[in-house]
Write a protein that binds this DNA or RNA. Structure first.
Lengths: 114, 114
DNA sequence: CATCACTGCAACCCTATGATTGCAGTTCGC
DNA sequence: GCGAACTGCAATCATAGGGTTGCAGTGATG
């Protein structure tokens, strides 16, 4: 299980600037860590760590191709996160709406309870 | 302009654990910074800073109510982010698919060019 | 076979930032 | 008016983690 990380964790992975750039590059096509290092202003090792983080949350997958390891961006993972965030956002809006209604119309609202 | 931050920036705001908890709380209903502090294991000042960050990217809005400032989670902002991420994810998948096709079918593919 | 490119691991540095405390200014309730 | 509660600003602390260098191992290439 490495693809069901909580939304916040995935967002944390996405939030780091360098990581976002790496991911953007990978979005254009699969690439090895070394190849990325040649194109970006950071060392291969640093990129390697970022790729570890990204793989941890399922945003990239790695594949051994000969002597090098090729990474590919997992769009589906991003789509899954999008769905989660969208759902949460809608819940917030719904609750807020209910609260507002209740404030203007404080009668037949909340029944029993604690 | 405080609501059109790049996806990565919004994700960075969402990625901080404490910030996510604060936001979750606010998702249940509007609250002041002090009220949040009484319910969470961090100081009011710390919460205040987090709220600043969240407001910066449009995830919360503040409203002066009497002597206190009430914050409310902006679900619409989360929905907007979700749409952006979803779009990006689909682009990745599309590109990847095209590359795969091209690998298996290396004829009528890439036209001229260097 | 000798060399070169790519990977993985480990130790280390240094900055960003999450969290704290302390104080001063405002608005509410009595 | 006086005290209590809420806010804002500033200084400070401490840790997480992003970045680096260095080295050893392994598969490709000539």
């Amino acid at each position: 299980m490495t693809a069901d990380a909580a939304p916040a964790v995935v967002c944390a992975a996405l939030g780091e600037p360098t990581r976002w750039k790496i991911l953007t590059r990978l979005g254009e096509g699969p690439m090895s860590a070394s190849a990325l290092a040649k194109v970006m202003p950071v060392s291969r090792q640093a990129i390697g760590k970022h790729l570890d983080v990204l793989r941890e949350v399922g945003l990239v997958e790695s594949e051994q191709r000969g002597r090098e390891v090729v990474y590919v961006a997992v769009g589906a993972r991003l789509n899954a996160l999008a769905r989660e965030l969208d759902r949460i956002g809608r819940v917030w809006e719904t609750r807020l709406l209910r609260i507002k209604e209740l404030a203007e119309n404080p009668d037949a609202g909340p029944p029993a309870g604690s």
